[in-house]
Design a protein around this nucleic acid. Structure first.
Lengths: 368, 368
DNA sequence: CTTATAATGACAGACGCCTATCATTTTTTG
DNA sequence: CAAAAAATGATAGGCGTCTGTCATTATAAG
């Protein structure tokens, strides 16, 4: 029954005073090279691990973590906001304080500005939905050197000195969708229409590449049409998709890998009575998407599991704040949801309820 | 900037001494009804939450959690063991001590004996893979009243006064498999052969029912053969499956919902060069199953995500030990893995590596 | 060798809670 | 009403770490 060693034990073992051991462990400086080595050796030999509970108590520590998310009508990030708030609600008991910061989507200047503003706010950790840009990267590195543990979330930032990245492999996600579509064409010939936001968005391009690769290699009998760019806008997507479906009745599958899914759902709902049902795959299990799967409008949803992402980000920030070694975090795998393995519906605030009422009020697509 | 209230504040507010407030909060008894109410009101009014860090410090608390798992050649539980050990390795820093207890599978007496033995061991929490039996249920309730937080894992125990259940909905898992199979038969007609351990095993029966229900309702053109009972034994499964496939060349899909998957992989591998590839779904992402997916022997794996289950169980035990309200834990959803969204391969100890070497050494099924 | 400077030691108080003891007050019981 | 029992108050010491102060000693610079 060996007691777990305290810093006092370390000091004794190293043959220095508690004060010196503390100076080393907490990197306060003003310690001779020689003493530092002795203390570090003692730490290693005894396997000393700082008692986080005691440390937190003495400092009256409250963990301050922030999430920096793009703002907009993006259902996915709204969902993520909700998850974060939910976690925040269960946290006061653990002395954790969570804040969400909204930043205009795709706005590098705004993001950099927000990050800079946060630099002096004394946050222990920040989870940032990145934009891959040198200025952002620089800002993140600066935050890190100011002692803020930064985690990039959903979309990484290259060359940033972040603690880590939490997000899915979008190529894998696209491949997964591609294979599902391929499986659904065991019959043989088929035509796939892909809808995305824009080819310039890295996430979308990656998913597209993944899907195309799998279909070309393993399902050569399935023909992939050139993708439609819907700019992630529901009405535009609806408009374009409806036209393509009408002009090309051979289309047997639809893959929406961007964010204008509302347009897909409406198109599918409108056409359901008239035409045979193409196999349909979309991304992100938003309330609308869930409803579409439940009602059979959509066959499968590829999801990046924001709950897991949020938890993982919190974990990492916490570990960093506690100065514990990070446990390795393998990339999150995209989940496949069919109507039978949907997770229990989360309780939602009123403004995030699915829009199916509105959806059903328009049983026919607008003429154009 | 209001300080978070301490028990001292509660005492003051309630107009009693610290000692009395403490007696109430820690349920030490010997407090008049009236005082208790006053204290409870003060707690509610101030929103007092016990500072777990301080409490743990003062008690030199080390959390002691145990997992009680069935022992045997079951690949799934071996995988789970590995996950638990992995978690345990990262825990000393958080003063958590993890133990695994092996119990003979399906042995009620052994399980009850083990649980009883653990009763006096001072565990804070136990995660138990249950057997649904009154004796087990009784034992769990007793543990709970002795202050041990019990979580049932993977398979629940009815009427047990456990803190909660962590596991998947097996009907949903079966339905998911059924739908995948249905999707793969967009062509039309098809024949499904289901292999399970035994119809008397609840998990298996539930999965079977789920799959049958979905196929009957949404894919009536797919014919489901009577299931084969392979007793979860690889050689028997291989033997039976090979015979059925030979006798019924119409079989277009195989669904292995039990644990004798090694037999399925070998059969598929052996037949691959000769026959067209039936669509194949199995359960649990064991190393062997992963390899089978990677090599295309198997099309999809339904997985109950043991990592998540272990983490969830640990979370719940921890919350209970900290006397915090449990956050609601929605059932874990079965994951679908195709070869494109496989999670990063976990590092495995040598004895749990996939057996594909052995598998490939027998390119043909044994004659019989 | 004498200053200045750097490094070290020795403590003490605080963080919030737990445990224990003992004295004191209130309530119950006979 | 006295005696017994129950409830309450007061308080002290400890858990391991952090922070700060101040005195002391070792080292470097002049």
């Amino acid at each position: 029954m060996t007691r777990t060693p305290t810093l006092n034990d370390v000091a004794t073992r190293a043959g220095v005073s508690y004060a010196t051991a503390d100076r080393v462990v907490n990197a306060r400086g003003g310690v001779a090279e020689k003493s530092r080595t002795k203390v570090e050796e003692a730490v290693a030999q005894l396997g000393y691990v700082r008692n986080v509970a005691a440390a937190n108590l003495s400092q009256k520590r409250v963990y301050r973590f922030g999430f920096v998310l793009p703002v907009g009508e993006n259902a996915f990030f709204n969902h993520m906001r909700h998850i974060i708030r939910q976690r925040a609600a269960t946290f006061p008991a653990r002395q954790v304080e969570l804040q969400i910061f909204d930043v205009e989507a795709f706005d590098i200047t705004a993001l950099v500005g927000q990050l800079r503003a946060l630099r002096s706010e004394g946050y222990d950790g920040l989870a940032v939905v990145g934009i891959d840009d040198p200025a952002v990267s620089k800002e993140i590195s600066d935050l890190q050197s100011d002692g803020v543990a930064v985690v990039t979330l959903v979309s990484g930032v290259s060359h940033a000195a972040a603690v880590g990245y939490v997000g899915v492999d979008n190529v894998a996600a696209g491949r997964t969708a591609g294979r599902l579509i391929g499986m659904a064409h065991a019959a043989g010939y088929g035509v796939v229409q892909i809808i995305l936001g824009a080819l310039t968005l890295r996430d979308h391009a990656e998913r597209l590449a993944g899907a195309q690769a799998v279909l070309a290699q393993d399902f050569p009998h399935v023909h992939v049409l050139p993708p439609i760019e819907g700019l992630d806008q529901d009405p535009l997507v609806e408009n374009l998709l409806h036209r393509h479906l009408t002009e090309n009745p051979e289309i047997s599958a639809i893959y929406g890998l961007g964010a204008g899914n509302g347009g897909i759902f409406r198109t599918m709902a409108a056409r359901r009575p008239v035409a045979p049902h193409p196999f349909c795959v979309v991304h992100e299990l938003t309330p609308d998407a869930r409803h579409a799967v439940e009602t059979g409008l959509v066959d499968a949803v590829i999801d990046q599991q924001p709950e897991q992402e949020v938890d993982r980000a919190l974990d990492m920030m916490r570990q960093a704040a506690d100065r514990l070694p990070l446990r390795d975090n393998p990339p999150i795998t995209p989940a496949i949801y069919l109507r039978d393995n949907l997770p229990a519906a989360p309780s939602l605030p009123p403004d995030e309820r699915p829009h199916h009422d509105r959806l059903l009020r328009h049983p026919l697509p607008p003429a154009f």
